Amino acid sequence: MDELNKFYQTVMQDVVAMQSGDEDGDTQEQIFTRICQEMLSEAGETEDCYLAYDERDFGKKGQHKINGYSLSENYENVDLFITLFNNSSEIKSIPKADIDTAVKRITNFFRKAVYNSYAEEVAESSEIFEFAHTLATYSELKENLIRVNAFILTNGEYKGEIPPSQTISGYSIFYRIIDINFLYKISEQSRVPIELDFNNLDGKSYEIPCLAANIDNPDYEAYIAIIPGECLCSLYHNYGARLLEQNVRSFLQFTGKINKGIRKTINDEPHMFLAFNNGIAATADNIELDETHRYIRCRY
Rank of each mutant, 00 (worst) to 15 (best):
I194Q: 05
I280S: 07
Y138K: 14
T283P: 04
T134K: 09
L4C: 11
F131K: 08
T137C: 09
S89L: 12
D57S: 15
D22R: 01
S88K: 07
E38I: 11
Q253T: 04
D202Q: 09
Y295L: 14
S190P: 03
E130H: 09
Q19K: 02
F58R: 13
D219A: 09
P270L: 02
F110T: 00
K112Q: 10
E130V: 14
P163V: 00
T10P: 01
E90T: 02
F151R: 05
K65E: 14
Y206S: 02
N286Q: 15
Y300I: 02
Y53I: 03
V114I: 14
T265C: 15
L183E: 01
V148S: 03
D285T: 14
G44C: 05
A284R: 04
A213S: 12
V16E: 00
T292I: 06
V122F: 02
F129N: 05
N238D: 12
F85N: 03
Y171G: 00
V16W: 00
Q253K: 04
C36I: 08
E130F: 08
G59T: 12
H64I: 08
A225N: 07
G170L: 05
S125M: 09
L235G: 01
N259R: 10
L71S: 10
I226V: 09
F109V: 11
Q28P: 05
I66Y: 07
K204R: 12
K159G: 14
D26F: 12
E221Y: 05
L40Y: 04
I227S: 00
H133R: 13
S190G: 04
D48M: 15
G59F: 07
Y175T: 04
A132N: 09
F110D: 01
T107R: 11
K257C: 01
R176F: 15
I173D: 06
L4N: 10
Y300G: 12
T265D: 13
D2F: 10
I215R: 03
I208E: 00
S70T: 02
E157R: 14
Y8W: 01
G156H: 02
S139Y: 07
S125G: 11
F7C: 02
N116W: 11
L40I: 03
V15G: 00
G44Y: 05
R294F: 05
F276N: 13
C231R: 08
A282K: 04
Y175H: 09
N199K: 11
A150K: 00
L51V: 05
I262T: 10
A241Y: 14
A52R: 07
R299Y: 07
Y138E: 12
G160V: 04
R263C: 12
I227Y: 08
L183R: 00
V148I: 10
P218A: 06
F254S: 13
N278W: 08
R34Q: 15
S234V: 06
M12L: 10
V248Q: 05
S187H: 13
I224G: 03
Q189Y: 15
L183A: 02
K6A: 11
G59S: 11
R297C: 11
L4P: 10
P163D: 02
I82P: 00
N259H: 13
